[in-house]
């Protein structure tokens, strides 16, 4: 494990997160390029069987402790530090997700090494590790080097496709023990997402329709697409005004401001009042029949086409892709 690339395998509510597989995919590339091992460290309580899904790593170290059932930042960082104490990796990758936020910073402090946040990629330059970081709300890209190793890297989701980090191989699993003091922070319970109409601001994917959808009957198309992407349908004001969607689905100045990972704008012209509510989305894809529609000025990808034609084909293509992924 010493000198390896190490990934924190994040488990939450009984399964390994997508972000972990993405981190493994990146870790695998880096480890291979350096010719070193890829290790995953999994923490949990009675969760040893999850290690089996981490076949992308050469070695999985599993740490069992009742306090590690949930990823509480302080006990988790302490456990990781104890495991890494005398087998120091070159880099330790922690997914930047809500589950493990804070773990990376604490671990770096505990190890007395550098932490680098906001990484979207890792490069090797002259044998040294360099992190490519997206900071200042995405406006600046910085290449960052740590003064020493190990370096703790916080990795944005989406660095690599998660599929690449999945493997059917059975990894070698080792168990490590740690001693932890009582945690002053304890989980009482989880509260599930509220029922009722979806909360647009909490969705990762939004499929938004504008007047280009033409009639309420066509809304089903958008719903199918949203379902295939695992998201919800939103609308511009005219669509809400027509009563095709409830007010809770309106995006924009007089509706909600949203920042999903993916915003698909179908037949929306991109009026400022609308754009105001969605411009901070991580990825924006627009479909509009008018090549000069202003929505293309904020979208990352644009398609000039009739939405009614495009949506079904796109939905089918996504379904197909998903089916392949499931069987792989």
């Amino acid at each position: 494990m010493t000198g390896s690339i190490c990934v924190f395998a994040e488990q939450w509510r009984g399964s390994i997160s997508e972000a972990t597989y993405e981190a493994l995919a990146l870790g695998r590339e880096v480890a291979d390029a350096l010719g070193v091992q890829l290790t995953a460290i999994l923490t949990g309580s009675n969760a040893r069987e999850l290690a089996q899904t981490l076949g992308a790593a050469d070695l999985v170290v599993y740490v069992d402790h009742p306090l590690l059932a949930e990823t509480l930042p302080q006990p988790t960082a302490e456990a990781l530090a104890q495991v890494l104490q005398d087998r120091r990796p070159r880099a330790f990758i922690v997914p930047l997700t809500n589950v493990s936020l804070g773990v990376g910073t604490l671990l770096a402090l505990r190890l007395g090494t550098a932490g680098i946040n906001f990484c979207k990629d890792v490069r090797i330059a002259g044998g040294r590790l360099q992190a490519v970081c997206v900071m200042y709300g995405g406006k600046i890209e910085a290449t960052v080097e740590a003064a020493g190793e190990p370096v703790v890297l916080g990795l944005w989701p989406g660095a690599r496709p998660a599929e690449k980090g999945r493997s059917s191989r059975s990894p070698v699993v080792e168990e490590a023990t740690v001693s932890l003091r009582d945690s002053p922070v304890l989980l009482r319970r989880y509260v599930e997402a509220e029922a009722g109409d979806v909360d647009l601001t909490k969705q990762d994917v939004l499929v938004a329709v504008g007047r280009g959808i033409q009639s309420k009957d066509n809304l089903g198309l958008a719903e199918d697409l949203a379902k295939s992407l695992g998201g919800a349908v939103a609308g511009s004001r005219p669509v809400i005004d027509q009563g095709w969607l409830p007010l809770s689905r309106q995006v924009g100045k007089s509706g909600l401001s949203v920042k999903p990972k993916l915003y698909v704008a179908l037949g929306i012209s991109g009026a400022p009042e609308h754009v105001e509510g969605m411009k901070d989305s991580a990825l924006i894809v627009a479909v509009n029949s008018d090549p000069r529609a202003p929505i293309f000025n904020v979208a990352h990808y644009g398609i000039v086409a009739d939405v009614l034609e495009t949506i079904p084909v796109l939905t089918a293509a996504i379904e197909a892709k998903r089916a392949v992924a499931r069987h792989a």
């Binding site: 995405g138 600046i140 890209e141």
Partner: peptide, 14 residues
């Protein structure tokens, strides 16, 4: 603790 060094910074062109 050891510092992180920025070796290059550039604008993510809008």
């Amino acid at each position: 603790c050891a510092a992180a060094q920025v070796v290059e910074m550039k604008r993510n062109e809008p």
